[in-house]
Simulated scan of single mutants.
Amino acid sequence: MKKNPDTMFASDQIEKLRSMSEPLLSWYETHARALPWRIDHAPYRVWVSEIMLQQTRVEAVIPYFECFLHALPNLPALARAPEDQLLKLWEGLGYYSRVRNMQKAAQSVVQGGGTELPESYEQLLALPGIGPYTAGAIASIAFGIPVPAVDGNVLRVLARLLACGDDIALPPVKHAFEQADAGLLPQNRPGDYNQAMMELGATVCLPNAAPRCAICPVRVFCAAEKEGSPQMYPYKSPKKPRVIEERTVFVVVAEKKVLLRRRTDKGLLAGMWELPNLSGWLEAGEISAVLAGWGIEDAAPSALDNGKHIFTHIEWRMKGVLALSCACTPVEGSIWANAAEIAERYALPSAFRPYARLLPELLS
């Protein structure tokens, strides 16, 4: 595959694709999945759904979306929400900077005297956490502004339609696709077109060797299908290998409460509550010394199953330790939380799921 960062598409290539919007939109009207954020295209709802859908499957997002909208039904409510509530609503979705940036954006709007997202692509783009794709999605779907919204699904569709093998991981290449897509947008239905392209990529023009070309509504326009090799597109340069980190995770329980501590405000899982953990797989003597340092000297630590969690660039390989104590000894920078508090207030990142799932029984 080519890896040319100066990708540009000839006007005749784009012209050949202009008439595909009619069959694409007709297909979308018939085959679009019934999703809660498509019932009402209010700007706030569109925004919440688009942020949640980043890096997350649609099926997983639906209950989160409904719960989030019930708790924080509008932008001012999001702006004033306590951080613990915000993170609890996001618990399990991961990439917590997304929801923190949402709150920063909401607070920026409210501080400026507004109660709704601005009706301008440029003003949306200026808000924290809103990039070109999200701004394009909100502007086109909620406000009918004819701007493209090119996510990973749309990149894949366009790369196949144009049989373009340039590296979509390169910003100039992605920008070229955004320009191409802007030339295809029907001015009267930009939101429907953008959603139709996303839906096509999510349900028909699938990744790798799985495209369902036989049922594609724009098959006759697809250069890659004519070549007989749609699975070859798009090209994306390989990711760097993940960094492997070994961690020892402590599940310390006393008086039907578990010890939690808050991470620092910078770095991975910044500001999140966690089960205490240390770098490396500690030996028995080191584990006892750590517990003693926390003032917990009556617990006989026992091994829990190993766990694993994959972040974007890091993989944690975890060794679990259970320590049962008689009393909730004060530990600097930490709290003791019962089952109800964990269920309602304290959000634990999904990285700790192998051990958090044990807590209902341990704290009962």
Rank of each mutant, 00 (worst) to 15 (best):
R100Y: 14
P234N: 11
E29T: 07
A169H: 05
F250Q: 08
G271W: 07
A339W: 13
L89P: 14
A323T: 13
P241H: 04
E199G: 05
L75H: 12
E59N: 05
M52T: 06
R98I: 03
D167W: 09
A142V: 03
L363R: 11
L124Q: 01
V252D: 00
S140V: 06
A210R: 12
S237C: 08
F311Y: 04
P349V: 12
C213S: 00
A214F: 01
A142I: 04
F311D: 01
C67Y: 15
P76M: 10
F250E: 06
N188E: 15
A351V: 10
S229P: 01
L155R: 02
A60V: 03
L348D: 09
A60M: 04
T312S: 01
V218L: 05
L161A: 01
N194E: 08
E274A: 11
A137N: 06
W294Y: 12
P73A: 12
S325D: 05
N208R: 11
A135M: 01
D12Y: 15
G201Y: 02
E199W: 13
R100C: 11
L53P: 00
S325N: 09
G271Y: 09
H41W: 08
D167F: 12
I314E: 02
H70I: 15
E15L: 14
S49V: 10
D167V: 12
D84W: 10
Q55G: 01
Y235E: 03
F68P: 09
T30A: 13
A77N: 07
I39Y: 14
P118W: 04
A196M: 11
L282V: 14
L268Y: 09
F143C: 01
T56H: 02
Q13D: 14
T329D: 05
A81R: 15
L24E: 00
E283H: 15
E22W: 08
D151P: 01
A169G: 08
H309T: 02
L348R: 10
S49F: 10
I130Q: 02
G183T: 12
Q195G: 05
Y235D: 07
K308C: 00
V252K: 04
E59T: 06
K257Y: 07
P171E: 00
L291A: 12
A339D: 11
Y193G: 00
P190Q: 10
R263Q: 08
L362C: 04
A343V: 11
L259H: 08
L185P: 06
L53K: 03
K256C: 06
V173G: 04
S229W: 09
G131T: 02
K239I: 02
R18F: 13
F352A: 07
G152A: 01
P172K: 03
N4Y: 07
A337C: 07
G92Q: 11
P276Q: 10
R263H: 11
D192N: 11
Y346R: 07
T329R: 15
M8I: 15
C164Y: 08
C205K: 02
V61D: 02
C67N: 15
G293I: 11
K319E: 10
Y346W: 08
E178V: 05
A299T: 13
P148E: 00
L291M: 13
E116N: 10
V220A: 05
A284R: 14
L200D: 03
T134A: 01
T7G: 03
I130K: 01
